[in-house]
Design a protein around this nucleic acid. Structure first.
Length: 722
DNA sequence: GTAGGGTTAG
């Protein structure tokens, strides 16, 4: 008996002396043998079991206790939390309270963590009230856990989910007001304490803490950073310095994303230097932040370098670079890295999917997009709103607006992003009226349109010529929604006016923009001038473009063609000379089509494709038929110093036509043909493909750089308005 | 007890 007492004393002083399962079991057996398994000694054995993560053994012993002491309770609560059994941890806490035991300070970190993980703010608040009444809010660890809870739960839109267990809680009621939370305690005696919301709660807990350590600072800093309060976050980092606490890997991985957003690569590099000096540059968290920061500052090579030096890579480090590639328009590299990640046995999570899917959207590679969609469903991510929005966008950009709409309609929650994706989808497919009515429906459902949503609805108006509606939306931005019109909105309106033939109005509008117009805004007007054959205005616009961007190829080519079709050879020659002096070469037009999971590319006039003979044979046959039905080649917009016959041959060889022909001869009758082109579809091909769709009885979908054209039975979804 | 990557436009 006395030896057991000594043993207990030693163990209380140093319980970690027992380091293995067998040692613990020996001790347990010894207590039983000597008949000294009291509540106290049993609790010690339980705490030893839980320290060794032996939950099963701990619980078996725990159940034998009639009235478990606090040590036993807190051991199992901590163990449940460690093993992610959060609801059981909370249930035990409730039971402990019901048994009349008063928790000591080191129960609360686990309980609060469980509340955080269960996203149960209400319960967490009542625990907080309890802590305050016990006067334990001075405890360092408890305070840190409280801050973490408020940062997480109030930061993410106060999502409250109440687990089953808590229905047994007596008198729990809490009300979220706009500025305060009224909490009732766990106890039957209803006491209330008032706490402000969100980051204010975090700050308040922080300020009341008598002692703070690095973790305390890191927690507030993360809270500020995640709430977008960057100045405050950085101020706290400085304050750490004055309290003699050194920023560590945690601090820096919260601070680095701030520089990503600010795109302040200079400060970011300074931190990178600091990180290297502190020897924490191999930290996975820091590594991914650095990869992301460089990517967001368009220094993707630096991202690659950081990534390649990481000695350990988790799914987030991989994804930082995947997302970085996408953000920098390197879609093929993004897909390649994603494949590499999967090959490296790193399972892509929800975020990874929402990063890569846009790559498929940009490349219009439907087969890859579908494959990813399959992975998404198998991974159980189908209802993730980020992924679903990305899928809606991907399907519509890959030409399948019906699939996009199906996914959209099946989503159980729509936010401004998913609405925008489907509105833009319909806009690009020429369903302007549908897009506009979806925009109205979004507003009716109380989703506030953001700036991107306005870009989408203005684009919709532009593609179908809804001039009055567009003005209404444009003006409502500032008047109703307090949103500033940015370059994109001006560009959309300018584009709309141009397409509608209101060229002078468009010119005035662009000249008076609140934002400095870019070359691309003027370029859309230039192409409208070309469509509406207004050479005089085109010349004025082209000069505007050349002062902003003297190497704008598109403008040179358009002007040359306009001069040519007006027989103004002298001007054309002058412009060509200017191009040659600058060493500018025409970017080749190309189109591509997917066939049996392979992408086939065609460049205009390119005869290198192995199927070229069959393609020509097909085009020749179809051309004869077309001419019988009244097709006349429109060669005005093409080249100039070549004879008619040669021009026709050039038209014949236009990349979109080659791709369409290739698609038709390689698929079953009735299969939809989907072609993507890097620049705007040419007028003559537009006419020709209408004929081809009728003659071959095919639906042909061509995506050019600004929209989709659905050709069916001799007409196009754009109604020739484009 | 603390940290990093994501969807819509251009």
């Amino acid at each position: 008996m006395s030896s057991s007492k000594t043993l207990i004393k030693t163990l209380i002083k140093n319980p970690t002396r027992i380091k293995s399962k067998s040692q613990a079991k020996q001790l347990h057996a010894q207590f039983i043998r000597t008949q000294s398994l009291s509540h106290t000694s049993a609790s010690i054995v339980i705490s030893i079991y839980t320290n060794l993560k032996l939950l099963h053994e701990a619980l078996l012993l725990f159940k034998t206790l009639e009235s478990p002491p606090v040590l036993a309770w807190k051991s199992v609560i901590r163990c449940f939390t460690d093993q992610s059994l959060f609801s059981r941890a909370l249930a035990s806490f409730v039971e402990m309270r019901a048994s009349g035991r008063c928790p000591d300070h080191n129960v609360f970190p686990s309980v609060l963590k469980s509340c955080t993980m269960m996203m149960d703010l209400r319960f967490g608040e009542s625990v907080h009230g309890f802590i305050v009444r016990l006067g334990m809010d001075c405890d360092l660890y408890t305070g840190n856990a409280l801050m973490n809870m408020y940062a997480k739960l109030l930061g993410m839109g106060s999502k409250i989910s109440v687990g089953k267990v808590f229905d047994e809680m007596p008198q729990r009621k809490s009300t979220l007001g706009s500025c305060c939370v009224v909490t009732e305690s766990v106890d039957l005696e209803a006491e209330t304490c008032i706490m402000p919301l969100g980051i204010d709660s975090v700050r308040k807990v922080f300020e009341l803490m008598p002692r703070k350590d690095v973790v305390s600072y890191n927690t507030v800093i993360a809270g500020y950073a995640q709430s977008g309060m960057y100045e405050d976050a950085l101020r706290m980092v400085r304050e750490m310095g004055t309290s003699d606490l050194k920023p560590d890997a945690f601090t820096l991985s919260s601070v680095l994303p701030i520089f990503s957003e600010y795109v302040d690569v200079i400060k970011g590099k300074e931190i990178h230097g600091y990180v290297i000096r502190k020897g924490i540059d191999a930290d996975v968290y820091i590594g991914s932040s650095l990869v992301d920061m460089y990517a967001k500052s368009a220094r993707i090579e630096d991202s690659e370098r950081v990534f390649s030096h990481l000695y350990r890579r988790d799914s987030i480090s991989w994804n930082s670079l995947v997302a970085g590639y996408v953000q920098n328009g390197r879609y093929n590299e993004a897909l390649r890295l994603f494949r590499q990640m999967v090959a490296a046995k790193v399972r892509p999570g929800a975020v990874a999917f929402s990063s890569v899917i846009p790559a498929c959207a940009h490349l219009a590679t439907l087969h890859l997009g579908k494959q990813l969609h399959g992975y998404v469903l198998r991974g159980g991510f189908g209802s993730n709103i980020f992924i679903a929005s990305a899928l809606v966008d991907m399907y519509s950009k890959c030409g399948n607006i019906n699939a996009a709409r199906k996914i959209f309609d099946r989503m159980n929650l729509h936010d401004e992003v998913s609405w925008t994706a489907i509105i833009m989808g319909h806009a690009l497919h020429g369903h302007g009226h549908e897009a506009v009515s979806l925009f109205e429906e979004m507003k009716r459902q109380g989703v506030k349109p953001n700036q991107v949503a306005f870009v989408a609805v203005l684009t919709a108006c532009s593609h179908v010529g809804l001039v009055d509606e567009a003005w209404g939306y444009f003006n409502s931005m500032t008047k109703v929604y307090g949103l500033n019109q940015e370059l994109e909105h001006y560009a959309a309106v300018a584009d709309l006016l141009g397409r509608a033939g209101k060229l002078e109005e468009a010119y005035d509008f662009i000249s008076k923009m609140r934002v400095e117009p870019t070359g691309s805004v003027w370029s859309t007007l230039l192409s409208s001038c070309s469509v509406h054959k207004n050479l005089e205005l085109a010349e004025k616009v082209a000069e505007k473009i050349f002062t902003i961007d003297s190497e704008n190829m598109g403008a040179y080519v358009l002007m040359c063609n306009m001069y040519a079709s007006n027989g103004r050879w002298k001007e054309m020659a002058k412009l060509r000379l200017r191009m040659r002096k600058k060493g500018l070469h025409k970017k080749p037009a190309c189109s591509w089509i997917e066939m049996k999971n392979k992408t086939h590319g065609f460049v205009s006039g390119d005869r290198s494709h192995p199927s070229m003979d069959r393609i020509n044979e097909f085009l020749k046959a179809v051309m004869e038929q077309m001419e019988k039905e009244g097709y006349v080649a429109d060669t005005s917009g093409v080249l100039h110093d070549v004879d008619e016959e040669h021009k026709r041959e050039l038209l014949f060889g236009h990349s979109e036509r080659l791709a369409v022909a290739f698609g038709i001869i390689n698929t079953e009758p009735g299969t939809t043909i989907r072609v993507t082109k890097n620049i705007r579809i040419c007028t003559d091909c537009h006419v020709a493909i209408k004929f081809i769709s009728k003659i071959t009885e095919r639906e042909i979908i061509v995506r050019d750089n600004s929209r989709f054209h659905h050709f069916n039975r001799g007409s196009c979804s754009c109604g020739d308005y484009w």
